[in-house]
Amino acid sequence: MNDFFLILSVGMCVLVLFCLYRGTFGPGVLNRAAGISAIGTKTLIILLLMGVIYDRIDMFIDISIAYALLNFIGTVVLAKYIETTGEA
């Protein structure tokens, strides 16, 4: 079962690389923000998978809750900033 989770998290990391393309080269701020919020969701799942692999999920789950909160707040604050300055 551990091997399955390990393969899955490696696959997820490859997906994160593809999202990172959008986060780096995406034309404009908005595309970058979309790519980075997608990376955040995938990182959440990777953290939980790491927790299962190392058998310490009760520790990793706190980190992933904090990561989810900060990802959401980051996106909202960035949206607010773009809206206030009015330049996309």
Partner: peptide
């Protein structure tokens, strides 16, 4: 971050 969310919203 909680307070920041409150400021923003």
């Amino acid at each position: 971050a909680g307070f920041v969310l409150l400021v923003v919203s």
